[in-house]
Amino acid sequence: MAANLLERLFTPKRPIARNLEIGIGVTVATSLFAAWCIVTYGGLVKASFLPAPDAVGDAFVATLADGSLLKHVRVSLLEIYTGFVLSSVIAVPLGIFMGSFRVVAAAIEPVVNFMRYLPVTALIPLLILWIGIGFEEKVAVVFLGVFFQQIVLIADVSAQVNDDLFKVSYTLGASRRQVVTRVLLPATMPGVLDTLRITMGWAWTFLIVAELVAASSGLGYMILQAMRGLHPATIFVGIFVIGFLGLATDLVFKYAKALLLPWTTVR
């Protein structure tokens, strides 16, 4: 019986019961939390190395009460969304055209391919020299970090659009302009949303690195200050908040796709 169950669970791609799926997820998450409790409350590690859950909770309440947490969250969100939206607004149309028009690809491919293998973190010192350590520099880091990746990924989405869709549109009487607006653009939308969802995750990495290198506010700065002041609990607050903000953004993208592109989720 047990062997039978194991066999069923480890057959590739075989679906399992929804309750079982939720149960497994909850079990793993609570086990991790329990392990955290055991090593901290059990005195297995020093509080200065790994703070206990209640210490992190206290730090959360304290930073919330003095307004510092919300201030840092607001600064980071403003920086990341400004950089990300600026990048997306340019990269999405440019990527779509690059994937479908050879002339656009010929013009920008060499530059894009050079830039996309250049880690944006290598540009941070230069950006600090040029525009300082404030809001603009963080926006620039996020922008440069995701822009070239977005272009390449979206160009690929655009190039993958089935050529038969264009052919059939022409034979139905569509003009070249109509083929772009009524076929190419809608056909790329699911891939564009997926690309935005993936690159948003990368944007967080670039932002936090930029804030760790040089900043006067933001979640990365908050973590760095907590390290300097030997407040590991506050470091954990910063990490958890970043994690939850990322999770929330991801959920927004997921629901946006179901809402805006119902045909990708219907069955």
Binding site: N162, D164, L165, K167, V168, T171, L172, V183, P186, A187, M189, L261, W263
Partner: peptide, 12 residues
């Protein structure tokens, strides 16, 4: 008008 083997409907 043309009909293709691949149906080529607009999925959206």
């Amino acid at each position: 008008g043309m009909v293709f083997q691949s149906y080529s409907l607009f999925p959206w």
